[in-house]
């Protein structure tokens, strides 16, 4: 009797296994049941690195909201075609992108959103100090100001050499001597900003690829004039920062022709430096750190 009961349990659980497994496998591969029990293939969109509390819209329909613990959203069950992804968060610039979804494949979208008003922490030239209550207030030069200023006065910026041991000799890099971040290079040629991947094909960042087409070198943007300076934006992956005559802006490095650009600072011939993971800007005597 006990053996029969055990066999019965085994039979029931085997039946459950045989029933549940195909359903979960189909779900996992993105296949759904269509009319007349036919199987339809679907794809998905993966929205990554959206700030916590962002609303994710797909073709103007709210799909999900990111949280502090989950800043990545995977939207599944999408039939193949073009989709408009919109990411909104109060106080931030909008982020939007058109993505193509293919059967059984996922299109990636690395969100890049800066606050509408980028916060700047001004670094003052002087700091005030006072001794005893009877003593006078004195103005002392701010050592931080001097440190940051020195970044702007050095003729050759100090950027660490890469695994490729390539140093750049100017503000814009060159094809043969690009500005490096890991194995990603950046340079400007007559206003055209390029980025290149110097690692193995299989390890290339997703933004160098569209569906299955990965390129070693991609055009980041085509400016009318040669920029004053270019570099990688600290704290973000795959974002370039560019100084023009009237502003400093950031732009995503993407193979996708629809790039997202966001202004960081507007001014008169502003310049910037990247040092120790921080972005400093200088506009005349005004020096500030961009709070990223």
């Amino acid at each position: 009797m006990i053996i029969i009961k055990r066999k019965l349990k085994l039979i029931i659980l085997t039946a459950v296994f045989l029933t549940v497994s195909p359903i979960i496998i189909l779900y996992a591969t993105g296949d759904i049941l269509g009319n007349g029990w036919s199987l339809l293939k679907t794809g998905g969109i993966y929205v990554a690195e959206a700030p916590a509390g962002s609303n994710i819209y797909l073709n103007n329909k709210l799909k999900d909201t990111t949280s502090f613990f989950n800043r990545n959203i995977f939207i599944k069950g999408l039939r193949k075609g073009k989709y408009e992804v919109l990411v909104k968060k109060e106080g931030y610039n909008l982020w939007t992108k058109a993505l193509t979804v293919s059967d059984s494949l996922v299109s990636d979208a690395n969100v890049f959103m800066l606050p509408e008003k980028v916060e700047l922490r001004e670094i003052y030239k002087y700091i005030l100090s006072s001794g005893t209550p009877t003593s006078t207030i004195t103005k002392n030069k701010n050592p931080e100001y001097l440190d940051v200023l020195s970044l702007f006065t050095k003729k050759t910026p100090t950027i660490k050499t890469t695994s490729l041991s390539i140093d750049f000799k100017n503000n814009l890099g060159t094809k043969h001597s690009p500005i490096m971040d890991g194995k990603i290079g950046l340079w400007s040629e007559g206003g055209k900003i390029f980025s290149a991947w110097f690692g193995s094909n299989d390890l290339a960042p997703k933004y160098f690829c569209m569906i299955n087409d990965c390129k070693k070198t991609i055009l980041v943007t085509n400016l009318i004039d040669e920029p004053l300076r270019i570099n990688f934006l600290p704290e973000y992956s795959g974002v370039a920062v560019i100084a023009l005559n009237d502003k400093i802006f950031a732009i995503q490095i993407e193979q996708n022709p629809e790039k997202v650009a966001q202004t960081i600072y507007k001014g008169n011939n502003p310049d910037f430096r990247v040092s120790d993971g921080a972005l400093y800007i200088k506009d005349g005597g005004f020096i500030a750190e961009v709070v990223l």
């Binding site: 996992a28 993105g30 998905g44 599944k76 494949l105 996922v106 299989d202 690829c209």
Partner: peptide
């Protein structure tokens, strides 16, 4: 699995499932 696999719905669903 490499790039080709990592672009599939299955690759994205696997950790979640």
């Amino acid at each position: 699995g490499g790039r080709d696999f990592n672009r599939t719905v299955l690759s994205y669903n696997l950790p979640y499932i």
